[in-house]
Design a binder for these strands. Structure first.
Lengths: 201, 201
DNA sequence: ATCCGTGCCTACCGCGCGGTAGAGAAACGC
DNA sequence: GCGTTTCTCTACCGCGCGGTAGGCACGGAT
């Protein structure tokens, strides 16, 4: 892996762990194994580095977008695939969820704009499908589509961001098992509060 | 309000807004209208101030605990009251939720211990009730009680911490209306994924 | 052979941080 | 009246921060 990439992933990890303000360029440089000015050669300021980390995250997300798009148009299993895809994205690297949550807290104004531009269309689209499903009786009639979608996203994001800290409240033999229970129940809640008739898994 | 209290609430607000690392003692002192050393006279270090802010938060929470306790033993309306009480606690000051989430991210190890000591007993207690309800058929049979409780708490906490940033995804005439929809749907999700038969509100 | 761009370094800068020393004003007990 | 306590202040400290200046080694193009 080349140095630029190594800096990027190290920065992402430390920003997620300690926050932007809690991370020093020195700490990043140390972990990469270079001096601070070398780091600043590749990313001319800390702020620029932050932007790059975020762009990289968004880039990775847009890689799974096609699969999400596919899921929406695939009829019956839509829902399962959609949520599970979202879940997988954050689960394969919990730093992603933590970065998003931190950004949400640290820069609410900017984040609000970004969400309005990048996520709201999605929420609207999914809400349309839900509204139709509610009319045909396949889905529960009293669902509030937009709010529902937001809650499901919140649940996935917050659950993955908190990680072991919160799954630790679920007694289990291993961390994996606790996580498994966590995810299963998340899917169940999302499903059973949306579909009119409970379906087997 | 005396100075000590004023420092405490200002610190809480700024820690919630900008994070612990992102807040300087100077900024707190400025907003209170005193000099930095005066602040350090009342709270001899930044770390001590952080602890005091957290203790204060926990103190306020333990004020609502009796009402929560009451709710658990009050039979049928238990659930509604319980969730709504929790919701109210964080809604009457969203900084509380933000502080908790930040602490969760910044100090996962310490937070894990604190949760294990202070929250897990509650999760267990509620889970017991849910398990009984599931056996009598009043509640859905396939619920995972511990995981369910954790998810509901997550939903409340994350929803309130994100605040307008995320409710902004729900189209509405006013912020209040968006929040109202948000809370309603939260209650609906929590209820409909727990009770076997859907009940009117 | 030389030139130039790339990448990394050592040395350093100014600044704002958390925190300290110590003096002065006000309020209180005796 | 007078010492003591409580509180706030001015002045300062050392440190680690993000960032800069400038040099040196290397490699490819001419």
């Amino acid at each position: 892996m080349d140095v630029r990439t190594e800096i990027l992933s190290t920065a992402a990890r430390l920003f997620a762990e300690r926050g932007f303000d809690g991370t020093t360029l020195q700490a990043i440089a140390d972990e990469v194994g270079i001096r601070k000015p070398s780091l600043l050669y590749h990313y001319p300021s800390k702020e620029e580095l932050r932007r790059s980390v975020l762009d990289n995250l968004i880039g990775h997300f847009s890689e799974v977008l096609p699969r999400l798009l596919g899921a929406v148009s695939r009829g019956d299993e839509r829902f399962e695939v959609l949520v599970r895809e979202l879940l997988t994205f954050f689960r394969e690297d919990p730093d992603r969820a933590r970065l998003v949550v931190r950004e949400l807290l640290d820069r609410p104004a900017e984040m609000r704009e970004q969400l309005a531009a990048g996520v709201r269309p999605w929420v609207s689209l999914l809400s349309e499908y839900i509204r139709k499903g509610a009319e045909t009786g396949e889905l529960v009639p009293d669902v509030d589509p937009e709010a529902y979608v937001v809650h499901v996203i919140t649940l996935v994001l917050a659950g993955m961001a908190a990680g072991p800290v919160v799954t630790g409240l679920v007694p289990a033999d291993s961390r994996e098992q606790a996580e498994e229970r966590h995810v299963r129940e998340l899917m169940r809640i999302a499903r059973s509060s949306l579909f009119a008739t409970t379906r087997g898994e």
